[in-house]
Amino acid sequence: MASTQDVLELIQQVAAEVITPRFRALADDQVHQKHPGDYVTIADREAEVVLTRELGRMFPGARVVGEEACFTNPELEFTLGGAEHAFTVDPVDGTRNFVKGSPDHAVMVSEVVAGQTCRAWIWQPEHGVSWVAERGAGVQRNGESLTRIGQDRLALGATSKASRHGFDGGGELAATVETAWCCGIDYPNLLMGELDYLVYKNVHPWDHLPGALMVTELGGDVRNFAGEPYAPGWTGPGLVAAASTEMAEQVQRLWIEP
């Protein structure tokens, strides 16, 4: 059975060979939109093919649920919760940033066993930073154990929902800022204490399972808008990730419209 380090090295190799050579070097015919504003590139597609193939080789019998495969076959996403062993793959998280030449993109993978996320990987190739979590064993940043350091301030959050940018909960929160449009950047910002909570409307497992495990491993809370713990197989709408249960409850109370 392949180790956690083996999977990280696979992700890094695929990024180096398939993704990074296309960064700021994409031809027009290598960029498409699945929906208006929802980009996919040759790097996304080729990286997912390689990651899917190699994870299947490393873990025979495991189901691989990739973002691009789910665009072709949407039903695949809904098989995750019932899978005995599965992986999610986001080959280029933050594709819009990647297309625009921003270094704020990542490769993300999570492992799900019997409906529970047990390992997670985020690799930020242009920043050269890896984030790895194993259930019950905490989070490592570039191989070193991570401890979240909170900030002495009103809770600062980020959301992709434009109508809530600047929302401060009547003064109980700092003015909410825009996300990085990349969960592989947003969740690490929460882990590092640069943000205190995140609020998302759209919830896909390849976007959120890796970061959710990391947040909970550091004592945080990830839940849906009904207050239920976020888990594989749950599809939304809405998600709150926060540095603590108390903060998640506060954000949920202030954000969720009656």
Rank of each mutant, 00 (worst) to 15 (best):
A2Y: 08
L8F: 05
Q12V: 09
Q13W: 11
V14C: 10
V14Y: 07
V14D: 06
V18E: 02
P21D: 01
R22T: 01
R24Y: 08
A25W: 04
A25T: 04
A27F: 00
D29H: 06
Q30D: 12
V31W: 07
H32I: 02
H32D: 05
H35T: 14
P36M: 00
G37F: 07
Y39K: 07
Y39S: 07
T41N: 04
D44W: 02
D44V: 04
R45Q: 12
E46L: 02
L55A: 10
L55H: 11
R57P: 00
F59M: 01
P60E: 04
G61Y: 04
V65E: 00
C70W: 04
P74N: 10
P74S: 11
P74F: 06
P74V: 04
E75S: 13
E75I: 05
L76H: 08
T79K: 06
L80K: 00
H85E: 07
T88Q: 08
P91S: 14
D93P: 15
G94P: 09
T95R: 09
V99A: 10
G101R: 07
G101L: 01
V109R: 07
S110I: 03
E111Y: 02
V113S: 02
G115E: 02
G115Y: 06
C118K: 08
W121N: 11
I122M: 10
Q124E: 13
P125F: 08
E126R: 14
H127G: 07
W131R: 03
V132S: 03
E134P: 13
A137Q: 11
G138R: 03
Q140M: 08
Q140N: 09
T147V: 05
D152K: 12
R153H: 15
L154V: 08
A155S: 12
L156W: 09
T159N: 07
S160W: 12
K161N: 13
K161I: 15
K161A: 14
R164L: 14
R164I: 09
F167S: 07
G171V: 10
G171L: 05
A174P: 12
T179H: 12
W181T: 13
C182H: 08
D186H: 12
Y187H: 13
Y187A: 10
P188D: 05
N189Q: 15
L190F: 06
M192N: 15
M192I: 11
L195D: 00
V199I: 14
N202I: 11
N202F: 14
V203G: 11
P205V: 01
W206P: 06
D207L: 05
L218P: 15
G219S: 13
G220R: 00
R223L: 04
R223W: 06
R223K: 10
R223A: 11
N224W: 12
E228G: 08
E228L: 06
Y230W: 10
W234V: 15
G236Y: 05
G238K: 08
L239R: 01
L239F: 05
V240A: 04
A241H: 07
A242I: 06
S244M: 00
M247F: 06
A248T: 03
E249W: 02
R253P: 08
